[in-house]
Write a protein that binds this DNA or RNA. Structure first.
Lengths: 106, 106
DNA sequence: TTGACATGCAATAATTTTATTGCATGTTCG
DNA sequence: CGAACATGCAATAAAATTATTGCATGTCAA
């Protein structure tokens, strides 16, 4: 099985995963998909401890989307966010597994 | 199988992987372990395109070591670097696989 | 011992990332 | 229609990351 992904894409994904707030968003979005920006902000406040502004969350979501990790749609005035795990799997294929699976002691 | 890793450790690992220079260092160190700082600098110059200062490389190595990804030893005046992939595997266990393996369509 | 070598340490500069603020736009509901 | 709502856009501030420079320390080898 073969995946195609250039360095820039891979880089965007790794960068997207570098921030704990974004990883938390990914976690929550996986637990419950199709959340609005407001819902995501609410989660963030409820769990994260520190309350980020809506714009901060928006910027994090932008980075996730830029890395191709998000599927976004609109329902009226509401923006709906869900995960797209495919790029994550591709990144794992071409990088992570290379280091984690080769030469593993059984 | 159970792994123990706190949020800080996980965060250091993800941050360490966020930079392309560091990922390249990991790649090269995997191809050829037990390299000195100078060797790593030389590689970086030879391959990376942009020539970083020795100190820049040192700082990158520090971050990798801080994330527990490096095994360092001394031979006289020479510092020897090798990878320690165990933390990477642990990080994959508690985070990556959760998202990548669950709910995979077969 | 001395000079070249391999590296460390510390300060600072340059760049990027993260967060905030204020205002603007389109949508729903009464 | 008009008010509350959900979000966007843009500028800027704050903080963190990345890279550089200069000097210091310990080691090897002639």
């Amino acid at each position: 099985m073969f995946v195609a992904m250039n360095d820039d894409e891979l880089d965007r994904i790794f960068r997207a995963l570098a921030d704990p707030t974004r990883r938390k968003i990914i976690d929550r979005l996986r637990e419950q998909p199709d959340q609005s920006l407001f819902q995501i902000c609410a989660m963030s406040v409820a769990e994260g401890g520190k309350a980020l502004s809506r714009q901060a969350i928006t910027q994090h979501l932008d980075m996730l989307q830029n890395a191709g990790l998000l599927h976004v749609s609109w329902s009226g005035r509401t923006k709906i966010h869900s995960l797209d795990l495919k790029p994550l799997r591709e990144a794992a294929d071409i990088w992570f597994r290379k280091h984690l699976l080769e030469g593993e002691n059984p």
